[in-house]
Design a binder for these strands. Sequence first.
DNA 1: GAAACTTCATATTT
DNA 2: CAAATATGAAGTTT
Length: 645
Amino acid sequence: MDSIVPCLDLNLYTEPNSSSSTDIPQKITPKIEPIDEPSPFLPSTTHQIPSVTPPSEPDVSSEFNRISELFRTTFAQRLQKYGEVAMLPDVDSNSGAIVPYNNPEAQVANAVISPRVGRKNDQRSSELVRVTDLRPEDHLCFRGRIRRTRLLFDSLRAFLVAQIEKGRDSLTPQRRLRVDLKVAQLMKKQGLWLYRDKRIVGAIPGVSIGDVFFFRMELCVVGLHGQAQAGIDYVPASQSSNGEPVATSIVVSGGYEDDEDAGDVIIYTGHGGQDKHSRQVVHQKLECGNLALERSMHYGIEVRVVRGLKYEGSTHGKVYVYDGLYRVTDTWFDVGKSGFGVYKFKLVRFENQGQMGSVVLKFAESLRTLKLDAWPKGYVSLDLSSKKENVPVFFFNDIDEDHEPLYYEYLTSSRFPLHVYDHGAKGIGCDCVGGCSDICSCANKNGGDFAYDLNGILVRGKPLIFECGPHCQCPPTCRNRVSQKGLRNRLEVFRSQETGWGVRSLDLIQAGSFICEFTGIVLTHDQAQIFTMNGDSLVYPSRFPDRWAEWGDLSLIFSDYVRPVYPSIPPLDFAMDLSRMRNVACYMSHSSSPNVMVQLVLFDHKNISFPHLMLFAMENIPPMRELSLDYGMADEWTGKLSICN
DNA sequence: GAAACTTCATATTT
DNA sequence: CAAATATGAAGTTT
């Protein structure tokens, strides 16, 4: 069962008319582009290929029409010739040619990621599998694996960025470093790239539609798209059981001028034919990814689509969004805008998939500038914080008339008992008048490092972080003030059928960045006792598990990694009263695989028993996706995750 | 806009 | 002949 299709004639793609190959002119005139290696679908006399410019000459397009026609008829002929044997199952077929995907048990076993064995040089397996019908617990398992992998990628990147920043002085010229590549390389060396032992056709288990990636390499690491640069990923002919390549995923990043992206329907340009400056300068050939995409159409193989989108706020102005599965429905040879031959592929999105992530991103972005009367129905309040936060906190409910969140006073920062501040200002802050550097006394309290990189990304979770604060001499722009500055993303409290209340963001939140504080009136142990007797429910911060330890846990990369234990702090012994004053954080739902975590921070006083509860993103959180926290509650799946590891 | 960068497929050499 | 090595093409990020 390891072959995807019965064997075909391996000579299918070699030039059938070998006698004529020596007649092909290498150069005719500077204006005419010879095709060095004619595809079998082109006429053997290639010197009639149209001139470079101008593209609009009538004989040019007619010549291309002729070639295009020939291309089509050759497809048809081949289909006629091989169609009856070369059939891969469609999604609903149970021919079994793709290694088992009708047996739920087998699917999981089949696609479980195991350490590479027996394969040399980190090569990917050529074995095609499709993973379907995941049970909820399977999905959680795969999701967890993706999550841990991405957590490692993101936090390893933050770590390396911080290291580089630290070693850099202002005199030496800045080296341009590709930290993303470094991260990918390190992870690959440790065998941490996912799905290398199977080629997955269709969805990657654990990757959801709408998942957002900041780096192209991250797509490789999670197995979504295996090419570091090329837009078409495929099983090469040499690895395929029948000698034919098969495409499994594409990235639509706008690098080709002839692409037409209408969302559900994409006219995708094949790759090749470009010069260093991404201009089409020669005709494309039907080979590599182009041929593979054509084969995927022939066999009805679904293709994953990732879109590269412009996005302000990303370090390089671009993000990648997984938009789901498409099928190739048509292909033809065309004259591109620059006048050279390009292969085109029509891709149509499968129905009944979730909304496209790229659409959600664009929608959330459009809300920035949209007039209020054009907003969707359901916005009860446009700012729960009444302008106390930097950005509005929206309140959305299109389900019922429950307006409860409106009835609380909004608290931007936790209110501690007065005695917490009762120590005088001596020895609290640093004296870095001109801005903080490595020798800053606050940095020293963190163990000699700043907890954040220059972009404000948390480098590594710690038991407690010391930020500079009101008692420091440094300016408010100091790099060591991140969580005290309040919201940066437009958050939204919303009514949900499943979770009652929930929180989501209208902005894309990058992994490792600060989201908001979890605020309330802080009660000492004794005060809390009295409250509990009155029947009021309180939140006990000590119940939040140490999720911070996961952010920046590099033990899989560096064998000498030790989990940070400094500074050691006593167990939290206070409660938070949310009965009158609260902020957006308390509406976050619980999850045992949360995308938000608690990091304790101190900045306006020095009592380590009463730190602020600051919330940071553990993943890249796309707009409109629900934020979740681990409140330390038992989870119904907890006992069933043993198949994971 | 140029340089740095990595992977992969294929071609070539040992 | 298999393994090692070289080359070119792919496109993103700084």
